[in-house]
Structures are given as structure tokens and as C-alpha cells.
Design a protein around this nucleic acid. Structure first.
Lengths: 150, 150
DNA sequence: TTCGGAACGTTGGCCTAACCAACGTTGGCG
DNA sequence: CGCCAACGTTGGTTAGGCCAACGTTCCGAA
């Protein structure tokens, strides 16, 4: 936390990709700090959120849903299973797959992390009015939609 | 370039910190791709931009200006000096320091990279109108300003 | 004037997020 | 049946950022 105001070259300071990078980096620091209390990280939260929303799924499905690589899902699920937030069971209908399901403790943790995330958003967006927050969300969503449709 | 539309959990899809992260990741991919043609990376461009704007500086100064760690500046300056884009000379007025100066070739390369960056911005912001681009820039700038003042 | 702390460049490390290749297993389809 | 695709898993690599330590050099306060 040096906040030594990295006053990058002026040319960069007005470059959207640079601004995005810096803003995302800052958001990431806030998120990390928030998640540290849970001793979990972004990966874990994304998986818990996906499971909360859509119920049990295979690891490959989870990876696709969360934009996480198959191989990274393995490690994250290991962690979550080790803490009892998730159960990994072979899929009887397709023995290639594991079915990952949320436990009660996992559902609780997901709720707590969601609260943490909400608090971080408030912190992150503090300088913006409610309308501006919506506008920012809208613009970013448009950007991502455009770039995710081949 | 899979653009397999990472359709993250809906809860995440509207979370600003997540959107920022995703948008920045995409911008980063575009920037990296653009810089690959120069066989240089973000670090190098930032340094060249700072030197172009403010003239010769010590490595520590450059690091502070660009938000790059001292130790990372060393490696980046090594690269740039090895390609003749930059000259590293001891500061006669303070023998602890090196003065880094742009060569003519370095100034040229900086211009070319600036062009590349501009092209990437257009690509990145394609779905947004000019007014929307300004609005996005404004919002992100406000965010960063707020969070960089202790 | 000396002495202690601060800044400098440098080395060497460590961590996170992301991605990729390969392998053996399993499923499904021609 | 035979082949290809999907699955989970292991074991990498990369870029980016950060930190600790060291010897050198500078400077200000005793």
C-alpha cells in the first residue's frame, strides 16, 4: 500500500487500456485483501458462485462457465474439497466426469464471500454516483460482449 | 483467441471488479499482440514513453514515474540498451545514479509503439461511440484518482 | 569532521493469474 | 469394432508485480 500515485507518463494516463489495467489492478488488490479473510482467492469464489447459481457440475463445465482452465479447476476444487466446501464424486452416468457439489458449509462460505465482494465494490466505486456506477457497468459489459462474440 | 464467451456466473457478470478484470485482461491480450510485432513488452513501452515525455532520468526516477519496481527497471533498461533504444551512462553529478537517455532509434521506436497502442485502443473501444469512450475514460480516471490519493 | 541513515543500482528470489501440452481413461458415433 | 472427442490430471511456461539484501554513494546532523 504505497499509493505513491504512480503518475505514469501523461500519454499513458489517458489511454483506456492503461486505465483499465490500473483500475483492474486496484480492484484486484481490494478483492485479494477481502478474500484473504476467507483464506481463499478469486478462483475459489468463482467456482462457488457458479455452483451456487447453477448447481452441481463437472469440472470441465465449471471451467467453461467461469473461464478457468481445466487444469486450474483441478487445484481449486482440491482446495475447496479439502475445506469441506465442495464434494467431488464420480459421475455414475459418465465415468470420465466428476460431479462437484456444494456442501452446506460451502453454500455458507459462498454467501459470506458474496458479502465481501459487495463490500469491495462499494469501496472500489466510492467516488462514483449510482448512475455513474451503472454507466461504467454498462460500458464494460458492452465492451466484453463485443469482444466475446467471435 | 478462443472467445468461447466465458459466460461467468450471472452474479459475477454484473460485478464491476470482475468486469474490470475481464476487460483489462482482454485489453492486455490486444496490447501484447500489438507489442509482439515490436518484440517488446509493456515495461519497455512505458519506459520509452516516460523518456519521450520527460527526457533523460535515473532508473529510480523512471521506476517511480512508471510505477515499475527498481529491480524490474534494471532488466527493461538492459533490454532497451541492448537494442540501442536507450543509453545508460553514469551520472557525473551523483555517482549512485545512471542517466538513461533515449537514442534516435529509441525515439523512433517509441513513436511506432505509440501508433500501435492507438490502433489497439480503436480495436478495444470499437463498440463504443466517441462520447462513450470519453465517458469511460472519465469514470476510470476518477476511480484511479480517488484511490491514489491516500 | 565524522558518522549514520537514506537513496541508488543490482541480484535473486517469490507469487499470482493465466495458458498450454501431454497422458491415460472413458464415451459415443460411424 | 475403431476412431475421435471429452474428461481429469500432471507438469510445465509466461508476464507482471513485489520484496529482501547487498555494496556504493551521498548528505545532513551531531
Amino acid at each position: 500500500m504505497d499509493h505513491a500515485a504512480p503518475q505514469s507518463p501523461a500519454g499513458l494516463r489517458t489511454t483506456p487500456s492503461w486505465l483499465l489495467n490500473q483500475a483492474a489492478a486496484h480492484a484486484g488488490r481490494l478483492i485479494s485483501a477481502g478474500f484473504a479473510a476467507h483464506d481463499l482467492r478469486g478462483y475459489h469464489y468463482r467456482l462457488l458462485a457458479a455452483l451456487t447459481e447453477s448447481g452441481p457440475a463437472s469440472q470441465a463445465d465449471l471451467g467453461r462457465r467461469c473461464g478457468i482452465d481445466r487444469s486450474d479447476v483441478v487445484a481449486a476444487v482440491n482446495d475447496l474439497a479439502g475445506r469441506g466446501f465442495v464434494v467431488r464424486a464420480p459421475d455414475p452416468a459418465d465415468r470420465r466426469r466428476n460431479v462437484i457439489s456444494l456442501t452446506d458449509a460451502g453454500a455458507d462460505e459462498a454467501r459470506r464471500m458474496t458479502d465481501t465482494v459487495a463490500r469491495v465494490q462499494d469501496d472500489l466505486l466510492a467516488p462514483l454516483s449510482s448512475a455513474e456506477r451503472d454507466e461504467l457497468t454498462r460500458l464494460l459489459t458492452r465492451l466484453l460482449e463485443h469482444h466475446s462474440r467471435g
